[in-house]
Amino acid sequence: MKIGDMTAIPEPLLEVRDLRIAIPGRQGEHLAVANIGFTVASGEILGLVGESGSGKSLSMLAVMGLLPAGMRASGSIRFKGQEILGLPERQMRRLRGGRIAMIFQDPMTALNPVLTLGAQIVETIELHNPSLSSRELRNRAIELMELVAIPAPDKRFDQYPHEFSGGMRQRIVIAIAVANDPDLLIADEPTTALDVTIQAQIVDILNRLRREKGVAIALITHDLGLVAGLADRIAILYAGRIAECGEIGAVFQRPRHPYTAGLLAAVPSIDADVARLYAIRGTPPSLADRPPGCQFNPRCPFALPRCAEYNPEFRRFGETVVACHRAEELNLASDTADAR
């Protein structure tokens, strides 16, 4: 069974199936994304969680049609029922910045330093609404700046990026992203470069966008705390595959995949003491040298011989879907504590 079938909702906004992304290397191609599938419903926030090299950012670049030259994607990416993988650049461009928008990790490099912030917002609106007058454009831009909680937006309109701090710039980046009321916002580590107190502000803004504008958000992050606060559903990626995917509460309360359980046990808590953190042994596999079978098996404390033989199928448990041979028998909450 495919993961897409199991989490399918009547009409998902975004449906990714069997996505594979190949990166050229010295000895032929390597799969950076080896079969990923997930869905995002309208107005939903999906958290895509994984460590560096898990393929979370690449999959989203594929959705945007922005994969670096030389990489090849195959499989299916459907947006509102329409296949968009391999769509001609002209049509893709109309989607991008219109129906699908993206915000990046680093607000410092995402803005043009020689244009005023207002001009940059206006430019995006104008691209998709060429008929608006300059007065209307300015008003729309100021509305957007209010939406992302920028104080005194009509004064800020004529300022340049260097006059803004990191948190303020990230708000502008968000304002530009939602300028044309996109249906889907892809947020790639939107708070990683920001301080804790500023992070909280950005989280508030993202929540508000979803509430007031009904934007669906695909949130790419490695920060479990951020997903916990924002996402409705979560997909855990490991080495280019989905390990576990499901409703956020269910996954955090009762992780079914040893990797998920390991990640949760590896982060210290702000209000509880543990004598020793749980550490997942080893390191993620290199793309050129993937282990056979379940990608996690060399690091898994519960691995059996069959884990190294073939890749586990997805199995459904209530609100979650898991790819683990031992998903039924393990009770990870206590077993992980024992393995510690």
Binding site: V196, T197, Q199, A200, V203, D223, L224, G225, L226, V227, A228, G229, A231, I248, G249, F252, L264, V267, S269, I270, D271
Partner: peptide, 12 residues
């Protein structure tokens, strides 16, 4: 404020 802003990996 710092303590209250620190994210917790617990959705509830």
């Amino acid at each position: 404020a710092l303590l209250s802003a620190a994210p917790m990996p617990d959705p509830i």
